[in-house]
Design a binder for these strands. Structure first.
Length: 465
RNA sequence: UCCGACGUAGCUCAGUCGGUAGAGCGGGUGGCUGUUAACCACUUGGUCGCUGGUUCGAGUCCGGCCGUCGGAGCCA
C-alpha cells in the first residue's frame, strides 16, 4: 500500500500498517514529489489562496466519518489541516485517520482563510504523506504533573506553552545583546573553568582539570573587570554554575547571566544603565512576543508600566518600610523571599534597592564613603513578587582596601594577584551588574517556576534528560 | 542541610471503619460532513514505591529506606 503518490521519495512499506511506523526512504530525500512551494505556519498568511507544502508533526487530530482534522505543528506554529474523505483513496484516508500523535507528516493543500481558525487560516489538504508513524506518545492532551513532564522534557518542549516561553527567552537574549552592542559595550566572554572561587562564599562545582582541580564559574565578574580596564565598556554572556542546595522556584544550578562592566562608572550611573537596559528588554519582548504572552495568559499591563524612572530605595529606608509593613527584619539582615515580595508589591514597577550592608555582599564591592558599614551595591527587584533579577554595584578600586577585604574573607591571596594588578596599573572607579536570564523570563512570562524558562533545566535532584 | 506534603493502571486521581482494585483521560475497535482538551458505544490496562512488622486478613495501621513535589536558608 503506497500512502504517498507515485514519484514520492518516501513510502509506506507494502503489507504493514501505519501503526507499525513503517515508513522508509526508498531513495534520497526529495521534496515530497510535488511542485508546490514549501511554507511555514508562522508566515502562512502570505500564502492565502495558494497551494503549499507543510512539513511537521501531528499534534492532535479529530475525525468524523467523512473528514479528518489534523492539528499540525511545524516548529513555527500550529495549524489545522482538513481532509475530506472523497479527496483521497481509502488507504490514505484511513492512514490519516489512524496516524498516532506526534507522527511526522508532509501535507500539501490550499491555504484558506477561515473565521473558525485561531490563526485565521486552515489548509485544505489534497496530498497526505506519513513519514513516520509515532509510537504511543507519553504526553497526552490532558493534564500531567510537573515531575512527569520534566522527566519527558525532551518531548514537553514540543508543546504550545513551552514554545511560547522559549520564544520569549530567545527574544530576551536577542534584546540583551542588541542593547549592549548598540550602546558601546564590547562582548568579551569570560572563562567557564576557573582556578578558584570568584566570590568565595557560594558553593562551586568541582571538576578534574588534567592533574589539578578546576571549578565551574559562578560569575564572570573578576575577568570582566580586567576586560573593562582593557576595553572600557564590556559585557559577558554565558552559563554560570552554582552548587547550592537550593530547592526553590527561583533556583537552577546552571543558569545564564549577562554581566556588563564599565570603567569610569559610579553607582548612580550603574543604576541608570540597569534601568535603561531593563526598560529596553521589556519593551522589545512586548513588541516581538504579543502572541506568546497571550498564549501564556500574561497580563501585559504591569509590563507596559516598566518605564523610567524606577523607584530607588536606600537599604535603610527599605528596612524601615518593611518594618512598617509588618516584617520582623532588622537592620543588617539580607532580604528574605517574603521581604522581597512584600516590598515589590508596594510599587508598580521595578525597585532598585541600593547600599546594602557590606557584610551581605561580595568582597570586591566598594564601601559607601558616607557609611562604611554599607556597600555601593544595588539589587533590582522585579514587580509582582518576582524578586531579585539584577545584582551589581561599584567595585573597590583601591588596592589597599581590596587586599584588606581578601584578608578578611580568608581568601587565598596568591590567586588574586592578577586581580590586584588591575588596581596597580591605572585603577579607576568602575561598576557593573549581572542579570539572570531565567528569572527575567519567568517574570516576563508571568509563570511560577524558573525551570520552564530553559530547554533543559539543571537543578538540585535533576540532571536528566 | 532543615521543615512539610505525597508515592494506587501509560497519565491525572478516588479508594469510607482494615474485608481482597475503581473513574476520567490515553491505547484499541466501531460510529458520526466542521471538530477545537471533539463527542458516543464497546474494549484494553495493576508487583497499590521498596522493605520489615501488627492482624484471621493491609492500598488502608506502625517502623525503616528510596523517590517526587513544595518551602526555608543562600543567591541571579
Amino acid at each position: 500500500m503506497a500512502i504517498a503518490p507515485r514519484g514520492s521519495g518516501w513510502s509506506v512499506l507494502a503489507g504493514e500498517s501505519a501503526r507499525q511506523r513503517t515508513v522508509t526512504a526508498s531513495g534520497p530525500f526529495r521534496r515530497g514529489g510535488s511542485m508546490v512551494e514549501r511554507a511555514t505556519i508562522e508566515t502562512i498568511a502570505k500564502h492565502e489562496g495558494q497551494e503549499v507544502e507543510l512539513r511537521g508533526w501531528l499534534f492532535n487530530k479529530r475525525s468524523s466519518g467523512k473528514l479528518v482534522f489534523l492539528q499540525l505543528r511545524d516548529g513555527t506554529g500550529f495549524m489545522q489541516c482538513v481532509m475530506f474523505k472523497n479527496d483521497f483513496t481509502p488507504e490514505v484516508f484511513e492512514a490519516a485517520k489512524h496516524a498516532p500523535q506526534e507522527s511526522s507528516l508532509i501535507v500539501c493543500g490550499t491555504v484558506r482563510a477561515d473565521a473558525r481558525s485561531k490563526i485565521g487560516f486552515e489548509l485544505s489538504v489534497n496530498r497526505f504523506e506519513l513519514l513516520h508513524a509515532a509510537e504511543e506518545y507519553p504526553i497526552t492532551p490532558k493534564e500531567h504533573g510537573t515531575g512527569f513532564l520534566m522527566d519527558h522534557r525532551h518531548l514537553w518542549i514540543r508543546s504550545r506553552l513551552q514554545h511560547a516561553v522559549l520564544r520569549v527567552r530567545a527574544s530576551v537574549i536577542r534584546a540583551i545583546r542588541d542593547y549592549f552592542d548598540n550602546n558601546g559595550f564590547l562582548l568579551v566572554d569570560t572563562p567557564i573553568f576557573t582556578p578558584a572561587a570568584c566570590e568565595g562564599t557560594t558553593t562551586l562545582f568541582e571538576t578534574k582539570y588534567f592533574e589539578q582541580m578546576a571549578y565551574l564559574t559562578q560569575s564572570g565578574q573578576l575577568y570582566n573587570e580586567a576586560n573593562a580596564m582593557a576595553f572600557g565598556k564590556v559585557y559577558c554572556f554565558g552559563p554560570t554554575f552554582r552548587a547550592e542546595k537550593s530547592k526553590t522556584r527561583r533556583h537552577l544550578t546552571e543558569f545564564w547571566m549577562v554581566e556588563p562592566e564599565m570603567a569610569f562608572c559610579d553607582l548612580d550611573e550603574n543604576m541608570r544603565v540597569a534601568e535603561d537596559f531593563l526598560v529596553y528588554v521589556v519593551s522589545r519582548v512586548l513588541d516581538e512576543r504579543k502572541i506568546e504572552l497571550e498564549a501564556l495568559e500574561r497580563d501585559t499591563a504591569p509590563l507596559e508600566r516598566v518605564q523610567k524612572p524606577f523607584h530607588r530605595l536606600h537599604y535603610s529606608d527599605a528596612i524601615r518600610k518593611l518594618n512598617e509593613l509588618g516584617s520582623d527584619i532588622s537592620w543588617g539582615d539580607d532580604f528574605g523571599g517574603d521581604d522581597e515580595t512584600i516590598l515589590t508589591q508596594q510599587y508598580d514597577r521595578p525597585v532598585m534597592v541600593h547600599r546594602y550592608p557590606a557584610a551581605c555582599k561580595a568582597f570586591y564591592m566598594k564601601k559607601d564613603p558616607e557609611d562604611p558599614r554599607l556597600s555601593m551595591s544595588v539589587d533590582v527587584l522585579a514587580p509582582e513578587g518576582y524578586g531579585e533579577i539584577v545584582g551589581g554595584g561599584q567595585r573597590e578600586e583601591s588596592l589597599e582596601n581590596l587586599m584588606a577585604e581578601v584578608e578578611k574573607h580568608q581568601l587565598p591571596r596568591e590567586a588574586f594577584e592578577w586581580y590586584f594588578d588591575l588596581r596597580r596599573y591605572g585603577s579607576v572607579p568602575h561598576a557593573g551588574f549581572g542579570l539572570g536570564v531565567e528569572r527575567t523570563v519567568t517574570w516576563l512570562c508571568g509563570i511560577r517556576h524558573v525551570r520552564e524558562t530553559i530547554a533543559f533545566p539543571r537543578m538540585l535532584e535533576r540532571l536528566t534528560p
